[in-house]
């Protein structure tokens, strides 16, 4: 029963000559919150995006809930619907209202009736604190609010796992907290999460494990406490030295 929810096995990817992912082996258990961390260009965002095949990879395999990622077509779409994704730049559908953004997936992909989808969407918007703005358009909301809507949009699909690709990197400092609060709450509710982020505070508060990547390789995996206080690899020591001195 308790096989890991996400299994990456010997995943390799090139961008032209650049070997961006080198024999990546990572497993994520149900309910686990895993942080992908590393210097820019280390492949952490690419790794996050390969998990729902927004990026292709050349060799190796990725299994989600026991099913291997299909190459393309309807099966891939079906699998993606079980994997929530939150982007750095929010990517809310600009021509749809907040409510329509959240109900689109459930109605079109899951075939849920409009009234029911809207009821559930309002519950989720309530949970992320945007319910009173449901009929506005994305451009009328602040970045932090848009990102919380994006989280609600993913949650509306009842995903098995949520991917966060630098969810707070495009936000003004005062808005980062409101998004992180939602994410901490989500982690506590038992959601399986894979998060690319530099937010140490979030990592310490909510993460079960930190995966440190550099030059496309996994150098170290440890609990946040252990990783931030006693990093083992030189790369990790060097990286932490750079970001923690300020």
């Amino acid at each position: 029963m308790s096989e890991p929810l996400v299994v990456l096995k010997d995943v390799n990817k090139h961008f032209g000559d650049l070997h961006v992912l080198k024999d990546i082996n990572v497993t994520v258990e149900r309910g686990e919150v895993v942080i992908l961390i590393g210097p820019s260009g280390s492949g952490k965002s690419t790794l996050c995006r390969t998990i729902n095949r927004l990026e292709t990879f050349e060799s190796g395999s990725i299994t989600i809930d026991g099913k291997e990622l299909p190459e393309e077509g309807k099966e891939l779409a079906a699998l993606r619907s079980d994997v929530g994704m939150v982007f750095q730049s929010f990517n809310l559908f600009a021509h749809k209202t907040i409510l329509e953004n959240v109900t689109l997936g459930p109605m079109k992909v899951r075939g849920i009736k409009k009234a029911e989808a809207e009821k559930r969407a309002m519950e989720l918007l309530e949970r992320v604190g945007i319910a009173h703005q449901a009929h506005k358009y994305p451009a009328q909301l602040s970045g932090g609010q848009q990102q919380r809507v994006a989280i609600a949009r993913s949650l509306a699909m009842d995903p098995k796992v949520m991917l966060f690709d630098e969810p707070t990197s495009a936000l003004d400092p005062e808005m980062i907290t409101e998004v992180l609060d939602v994410m901490v709450q989500l982690a506590k509710s038992g959601m399986t999460m894979i998060v690319v982020t530099h937010e140490m505070g979030f990592a310490r508060k909510a993460a079960d494990r930190v995966v440190f990547l550099s030059d496309g390789e996994v150098h170290e995996q440890a609990t946040p406490e252990e990783f931030f206080t006693h990093p083992k690899s030189d790369r990790a020591k060097d990286f932490l030295g750079k970001i923690l001195t300020h």
Binding site: N52, L54, K74, A77, A78, L79, R80, S81, D82, V83, G84, M85, F87, S89, F90, N91, L92, F93, A94, H95, L104, G105, K108, V109, A150, R153, S154, M157
Partner: peptide, 27 residues
């Protein structure tokens, strides 16, 4: 249309036809 719109459409599980109809063509 920013590339992220199509990625977001795919990531919630819309097929190519659905993301065309619902997200890309209207914009």
């Amino acid at each position: 249309i920013p590339a992220g719109q199509a990625e977001a459409a795919r990531s919630i599980g819309l097929t190519f036809g659905q993301s065309m109809r619902e997200v890309l063509l209207p914009q």
